[in-house]
């Protein structure tokens, strides 16, 4: 039997982020040529703030996609966390660090509870997280009666508006921490490898001694934590505790990972690809605004992007399968 070694080149081609990365680059160049204001420092600041929040949201969905499931409750967890954070500060005068811990705890607990029910009953994640979506949203509205909390502490407000250097917002810091952490989880940590193993071949994973229940609960807990972080980042960015936070996360949370090459049946995710997915969506959204195009067109473009990405991923899978079949035959 011949020795097989993967060359660096094959590995590079196998990467998920090169395609979306190139697309982002071209989009930036093209739009800035047509509209130089695109690269103004104000615009970059706005763009980077949006990218930061959306990246954390997308990562929250990416964990679950890696497992081959989906989390419809992502946005409602983020919303509940956001209003709880501002709520306990405004109503009970809780100090910010304590409120922060409390809010993140809610996110983890919410994720863990869906994860526990899914792992325990093996009912589809879709229906459990749909119920979760409704429950968390209902609690959110029940508490706020659809009115925002305004008592966001100054420190948090500043954090959402200040820049680290030049046009780069502070919000990028938590985003980058989350992204690096998730890259680490998927590539270097036992839990991440187990999530991906479960996603690619649940049967093999279980026979290999991976505990499926624990893995599912962990994945949903991480997803809940990321949703919570994104919710808090939005509080900082919007400067109020809006009950509507999270309402519009659903589509983009799937769009970015899918554009980044994630396969929805699980086992294949790319943090870098997801980042460029987020960038592409942000650039297009921003571009439409700059060219005074109806912002609702964003919805259409998002939908079309998902379909396009799904088609590309599908073609790639088919091609890989064909190459492998040929390799096995030779």
């Amino acid at each position: 039997m011949a020795a097989i070694r993967d060359s660096a080149l094959t590995r590079a081609f196998d990467n998920d982020w090169i395609g979306p990365g190139l697309v982002s680059l071209i989009a930036v160049v093209a739009i800035s040529m047509a509209q130089p204001a695109f690269l103004s420092s104000f615009n970059i600041f706005v763009l980077m703030s949006a990218i930061s929040v959306n990246m954390v949201i997308a990562l929250g969905q990416l964990v679950i996609i890696g497992l081959g499931q989906m989390n419809l409750a992502l946005g409602s967890i983020g919303g509940l966390v956001a209003i709880s954070f501002v709520g306990v500060i405004e109503r009970y005068g809780v100090p910010v660090p304590l409120a922060l811990a409390f809010a993140l705890g809610i996110g983890i607990a919410a994720g863990m509870s869906s994860g526990y029910i899914i792992a325990r009953t093996m009912i589809s994640a879709f229906i459990i997280t749909l119920a979760g979506l409704q429950i968390f949203k209902g609690i959110n509205l029940g508490i706020t009666e659809a009115q925002p909390f305004y008592g966001v502490p100054e420190a948090v407000k500043t954090f959402g508006q200040a820049s680290v250097i030049g046009p780069l917002p502070w919000l990028m810091v938590p985003m980058m921490i989350c992204a690096f952490a998730m890259w680490y989880v998927f590539n270097r940590m036992r839990i991440g490898r187990h999530i991906l193993a479960m996603g690619s071949n649940p049967h093999a994973a279980e026979l290999s001694g991976i505990d499926p229940k624990a893995t599912i609960i962990w994945a949903h807990a991480i997803s809940g934590l990321l949703a919570a972080i994104a919710g808090l980042m939005l509080v900082a960015r919007l400067q109020i505790g809006q009950p509507t936070i999270g309402d519009d996360w659903l589509i983009s949370s799937f769009a970015a990972p899918v554009i980044g090459g994630a396969v929805l049946t699980g086992g294949r995710v790319s943090v870098a690809g997801t980042f460029f997915g987020v960038v592409i969506i942000a650039i297009i959204t921003q571009g439409l605004v700059m060219f005074n195009i109806d912002p609702f067109v964003v919805q259409i473009v998002l939908g079309a992007l998902i379909l396009w990405a799904v088609a590309v991923n599908r073609l790639r899978e088919v091609r890989i399968a064909r190459v492998q079949a040929r390799g096995a035959g030779a």
Partner: peptide, 10 residues
């Protein structure tokens, strides 16, 4: 695969 680490976050 089942011996990647002792704890989930290893």
């Amino acid at each position: 695969l089942d011996r990647l680490g002792n704890r989930a976050l290893s």
